[in-house]
Simulated assay, not measured.
Amino acid sequence: MARDFDGTYQPNAKARKQQEKDQRRMEYRRAIESYCDQRQLLRDLADYPELQALTVWQASAATSPKNAPQLR
């Protein structure tokens, strides 16, 4: 580990590349999970014909944790 004069961690090129690789891998996994969640939601909605006009984007926005009410 490379330490700067003030004690902060400064990754070398190899560590930086590994970190970038890990970040890309996690983004890919999150995309796969999101896709799987959307497909599951569509399968669940198939049981309710009146909701078939609902798009994936509307449904995922409605169930997004960002849109959940904040508890204080």
Rank of each mutant, 00 (worst) to 15 (best):
P65L: 04
D6V: 07
A31S: 14
K21R: 14
K17R: 08
P65M: 04
S34K: 14
Q19K: 12
D4E: 12
V56P: 04
E27V: 09
A68W: 00
N67E: 01
A59N: 02
G7K: 04
A59K: 00
Y9G: 08
A62M: 00
R43P: 14
Q52F: 05
D6A: 07
A31V: 02
D44T: 08
S60K: 01
R3N: 12
R39L: 11
R24H: 10
A31C: 07
A59E: 00
D4V: 15
A2V: 14
R39M: 13
M1Y: 04
L51D: 02
Y9W: 06
Q10S: 06
Y28Q: 15
R72G: 10
S34R: 14
Y28T: 12
L45K: 03
L71S: 07
I32V: 15
K14W: 03
L51Y: 03
Q40S: 13
L51W: 01
Q58W: 00
I32D: 05
N67Q: 06
A13M: 11
V56E: 01
C36I: 12
K17I: 04
Y35I: 11
Q10L: 08
Y48L: 10
D47C: 10
R25G: 15
K21H: 08
D37P: 04
R24I: 14
T63Q: 07
A53Y: 05
Q70T: 14
Y28R: 06
D6L: 14
A13T: 09
D47R: 15
E27I: 15
Y35C: 12
A59G: 00
S64T: 00
L51F: 05
K21I: 12
L42P: 06
R43D: 10
Q70I: 13
F5E: 07
A62E: 01
G7R: 02
G7Y: 01
A15F: 04
R43T: 13
R30K: 09
C36N: 14
Q40I: 06
D47Q: 12
R3C: 12
C36D: 09
D44R: 05
D37W: 13
P11Q: 05
F5Q: 06
Q70R: 11
N12A: 07
C36V: 08
Y28M: 10
L71D: 13
D4I: 15
D22Q: 05
L41E: 03
N12F: 13
K21D: 10
A68C: 05
K66N: 10
S60R: 03
C36G: 11
E33W: 07
R24E: 14
P69L: 09
C36H: 11
N12Q: 09
Y35R: 15
Q18V: 09
N67A: 04
D22I: 03
Y48C: 09
A15K: 08
W57Q: 04
N67P: 00
P69R: 07
R39V: 10
Q18R: 11
M1G: 05
V56K: 01
D47L: 14
L54E: 03
E50F: 03
D44E: 11
Q10P: 05
Q23C: 08
Y9R: 07
C36Y: 09
